[in-house]
Nucleic acid binder design. Structure first.
Lengths: 134, 134
DNA sequence: TCAATTCTTTCCCTATACGTCAAGATAAAT
DNA sequence: ATTTATCTTGACGTATAGGGAAAGAATTGA
């Protein structure tokens, strides 16, 4: 049973973030008076949330997972929805990668153009110098 | 030389978007009085902008790109700077790709877990049915 | 017991990429 | 000349994921 500050430090998030997720209904720490107290369960939930974030899911999507998790102790329905979302995410990421590759290709082109230009200028300068050498 | 509406239709964007990009300094159509007039150059720039958008870049990033194209490659020093910026861009994009690959890897893991769980549940259900079949 | 922390809620702020009015100003058409 | 159409600027709205500061309540330490 930890205070908000301790949890924030352990998870490397700010207290604001913990309150924010609570406000969004992702966690619900107990209270002692008005003060928030985090059980091991809440912290485990937070770790799930943070992983979801790392994987690029929105808070709303993460909430959907968690809600389902609560309603479905068998986890089967949850797993199915998770699979769907994973599929979406994977194809989005692959699309992003293709876009990056195209851009890299374009940049390589532009790079070659710049190099050619610089090289051309250097050659012209050398020609000029050689002319003086005559 | 086209009016804003015609350009918007040709490029399939709204007039608001054209004004927005102008406000952000990405394009600078001429004016006849207060009315915007788009030359072929502006439209070409717009096509570059839209390509950047399709590739998932922010407007700020696209502006940097356009500024790069603007760095008139007549001058060698400017071409060198162009090369530098291209280098930065390339390594940024490669880093992004690596991040995406890591995320994809994690997603694959999660996917396998979900599949295993669903499969396990199905197997359990079938066992249950078979039990009834006895 | 009094002051210093800690914690709380509330509210406004940020950035991104426009959408959506609103109110004027022009321009074209009749 | 007047209506209608087009264009202009300005400003507020939207979603996301919190940041930051104010101001009051509760706890802790000397």
């Amino acid at each position: 049973m930890l205070g908000i500050q301790e949890v924030a430090r352990q998870l490397d998030v700010t207290m604001r973030t913990l309150r924010f997720y609570e406000d969004k209904g992702l966690i619900a720490p107990q209270r002692v008076g008005t003060t928030r107290i985090y059980s091991r369960r809440e912290i485990a939930r937070m770790r799930l949330i943070l992983r979801g974030k790392r994987l690029g899911f929105s808070i709303r999507e993460i909430k959907e997972f968690l809600d389902l998790y609560d309603v479905d102790p068998e986890h089967v329905a949850q797993a199915r929805q998770l699979l769907m979302k994973i599929g979406e995410r994977v194809s989005a990421l692959r699309k992003q990668k293709r876009a990056i590759d195209q851009t890299l290709e374009e940049l390589r082109l532009l790079e070659r153009q710049a190099l050619t230009l610089i090289d051309g200028a250097a050659t012209a300068r050398n020609d000029d110098e050689n002319k003086h050498d005559d």
